[in-house]
Write a protein that binds this DNA or RNA. Structure first.
Length: 216
DNA sequence: AACTCGGGGCA
DNA sequence: TGCCCAGAGTT
């Protein structure tokens, strides 16, 4: 496992690598943010961003999602994977927000996770981006990068990864670290083809050194 | 723990 | 054109 000093080193290097890493989600409207993040499950943000402008033009409130037939909502998000489930979730989520939360999104992560389509990762994103709650959302990029580097253990569950990251990263950097890890995972430490040859943190990376030795 | 849902994007 | 990508829910 990487020491706290090594984690510090990794963070600094990765921040330098992706200085533009930041959250592109609109946080002025928590409900729209929640819809965006629910749509994001199992597909890229870029794909979601193609759909949301027109979507939010048409649907202004939770009530609007309830008024249209399910098939119409499905059609409006068709270009995204899993659109049938996601449309159902959005309708149910809208109903819950109206009936159980008085028309606005709950701020508590455990309450958020009661909403359909909102798991641990999504709840963390909503809580941190919309409500400023300190959190680290562990998606596949964050998980893969943390495990390869040796910040946490391979067998760790998502929850354990999250706890370890919170322990080893200063709280005021959780957001920046989260977004930087996403960029790092998507463009550099990729699932199938990690760019170990040109990696700035190879010297502390457990998996990277294994890979390089294998190649030699 | 394994399986399902489903498109877009890239090789 | 087939393989890879990306979470939540259900069993």
């Amino acid at each position: 496992m990487l020491t706290k000093a090594q984690v510090r080193y990794v963070l600094d290097e990765i921040y330098q690598m992706f200085p533009e890493a930041h959250c592109e989600l609109n946080h002025s409207n928590p409900f729209e943010l929640a819809i965006s993040v629910v749509l994001s499950a199992q597909c890229t943000d870029a794909l979601v961003n193609k759909v949301t402008p027109a979507l939010f033009q048409k649907y202004k409130s939770p009530e609007d999602y309830l008024e249209v037939p399910l098939e119409e909502l499905q059609e409006d998000i068709r270009s995204i994977g899993l659109f049938r489930n996601k449309a159902k979730n959005i309708k149910k989520l809208s109903r819950m927000v109206i009936e159980e939360y008085g028309g606005s999104l709950p701020e508590d992560r455990d309450e958020l996770m009661k909403l359909p389509g909102v798991g641990r990762k999504t709840a963390n994103v909503i809580a941190s981006v919309a409500f400023g709650v300190p959190a680290i959302a562990v998606d596949t990029h964050v998980e893969r990068v943390s495990k390869r580097l040796g910040i946490c253990r391979w067998k760790d569950s998502v929850l354990e990864v999250e706890k370890t990251l919170m322990r080893k990263i200063p709280q005021d950097e959780w957001s920046q670290a989260h977004h930087s890890f996403i960029f790092f995972g998507r463009y550099h430490c990729k699932a199938q083809s990690p760019q170990c040859e040109i990696c700035p943190v190879l010297d502390v990376c457990r998996e990277g050194q294994k890979r390089m030795k294998k190649r030699a």
